[in-house]
Design a protein around this nucleic acid. Sequence first.
DNA 1: CATTAGCACTCACCATCCGCGAGTGCTAAT
DNA 2: ATTAGCACTCGCGGATGGTGAGTGCTAATG
Lengths: 365, 365
Amino acid sequence: MFLNSRQQAILKAIVDDYVQTAEPVGSRVLSKRFNFGLSPATLRNEMADLEEGGLLRQPHTSAGRIPSDAGYRVFVDLLMDQDDCLTEEMRVHLERFTFASSSLRDVLAQAAKLTAVLTRCTAIVRSPNLGVSRIGYVQLLTVGESELMLIVHTQHGASLSQVVEWLGVVTPEELSLLTNFLNHHLCGRYLDQVTDQLLVNLIDEVASYESTIRGIWQKFQVLKHSEARVLVSSVSHLIEQPEFVEAQRIRSLLNLLEREATLAEVLMLMAQGVLPRRSLGGSCSVTVAIGRENPLPELQDCSVITAPYYIGDQAVGEIGVIGPTRLGYWRAMLAVEAVADRLSRSLTRLFGQPSGTLISRRPGF
Amino acid sequence: MFLNSRQQAILKAIVDDYVQTAEPVGSRVLSKRFNFGLSPATLRNEMADLEEGGLLRQPHTSAGRIPSDAGYRVFVDLLMDQDDCLTEEMRVHLERFTFASSSLRDVLAQAAKLTAVLTRCTAIVRSPNLGVSRIGYVQLLTVGESELMLIVHTQHGASLSQVVEWLGVVTPEELSLLTNFLNHHLCGRYLDQVTDQLLVNLIDEVASYESTIRGIWQKFQVLKHSEARVLVSSVSHLIEQPEFVEAQRIRSLLNLLEREATLAEVLMLMAQGVLPRRSLGGSCSVTVAIGRENPLPELQDCSVITAPYYIGDQAVGEIGVIGPTRLGYWRAMLAVEAVADRLSRSLTRLFGQPSGTLISRRPGF
DNA sequence: CATTAGCACTCACCATCCGCGAGTGCTAAT
DNA sequence: ATTAGCACTCGCGGATGGTGAGTGCTAATG
């Protein structure tokens, strides 16, 4: 639908007003609150046109108009004021957060909390696939009679474990031999580098333990593909919005927010860029999914704003917010981008060093 | 209030029925559903007495009776059937969970999830104070010009960090010297053992770095007392209960569940044993707080059931559930105890070994 | 020809009312 | 002590009606 400039101004005014008041906006308040120099009757005509074009809708016959998903989309892509930068308050919050922790998960949790505070929405963050983690060191423990527990500590501060079959009896010497072998060849490598090819190159060194090593390699493949984790912060922000007066809405949303795998999918989908992305001047690009643009029915009244974050120059995860479609888009986009940017820089500083820096300072290496 | 055996039977029947149906139970259904051989009129008299005694209450004049907090208390302490053991379904779930992970946090998250599934309530678990964690190894990194980042990896798979001031320029050799010193003296120790006394004994060894070491020691004190963490699982279970039809209830509860520090206090309070505790035959003892027995107004319509869990013979945290007061108490108590018991055994196996076992298998030690 | 005043119309919202039925307490009979 | 009978209470659900915000349409206006 083509919009002349007056229609654009009206649509923008309606979105602005509705975002602020959460009340459907009628022709009267529209003509009073904004200075179009037009009477309510004229506005009514234009509003009827905009509704016909699918950009506005009426909750019921005798109510004012509210933007439709398509209306918000036009607003976000074309109309919104982009001049109000980060407010002073936001800046203070941004400065206060340090992102200083040695555990990736803690850093991500901090970032999510910060995003939630800045946007007053619910924040979500997907942690990196394990493949992009470097191996810090590897442990082997005996568990019961004929099993080993393989523990992989990543340089991101996570530790993963798998049980490995062992044929026969294990002596402490053998365990130590194997552990040293593994650490010698794997420390500092990305989990993704633990490939069959690598195994082929190494297998001669420990020919007598070939089957065990193969078992361990197999478990590494399992670990690499373990499910992505998603952290959720400040659900309370979201459910205090007026669109969540009905308990059923809250339930459906909360249900979704406890399904980590589903959230991970949503985030990855958004990062893949089916929807238009916006670069806000920084290095990140922000994706906005409005209402039914979202893949999930539970999110059909919500908007999701995400940005990828990086370690080095590799995008490893996404951070974002879930809010009502009636959302201060620009402000939220700014906040998400700002956090993603700082998060990327912190993670790069903490975990992005060339292989070995972290562990080289561990005693005994 | 003294209860004769008939009154006891009636109270028990009312609680049983109400727990199952969530409907106030009147004299008629009571006389039909249970075989007292008494007419509704007689039951009405007894019910009036029980209400006078504070054990029952009426939501409104023309409704049936529901148990009061005190009524539930009598039920739990005296009346409930304790013969139905873990059901087959519960057993299957219990077996399926392995608690096998090298990260304390993951194990606790698994345990919480399990508890939530077994009880169909919301589960909460408080992770141990850091003081009872053993130090795995310590890292020092340079951060900027005159700061060090102290990273303490615990044997529980957690890593903690603090920034330490450093006066002057650091050479890699000095960093390595300090790191070796710290690891040599601290690996395998409990964080609680990093005391001023220990410092006095060691300070001579590195006299020239006294101020830095003192700075590091100070940060250890900070780490020891970092706030307890509480994991929450399956909020959706709870808010789908009929007592949470009103959105306001959900909001207030969710608000509480996002206040980790408050939850930690509640759990610790319950472990301290103001309320009567029950030993269910196992080694654990379960605490039940009913409705207004809880310290928080947000919990006044909920019951909380907790049990401590152990590493070795030391109680280090609590696990439990939050449910409506209309709760299958015995079943929930059994489940909480069963999980706490298995959790304790798993943690003891994973993290309770004598100092050094875990790290002795790391290369270079 | 775009704009606007006027007007009839719609419909969510709120308060009120009313009948129903479940459940009670009391009393008198057993 | 127990119970049948009965009047009474009160929440619930549906029906009713007034109010007001907001609309669409039409005809008048600059």
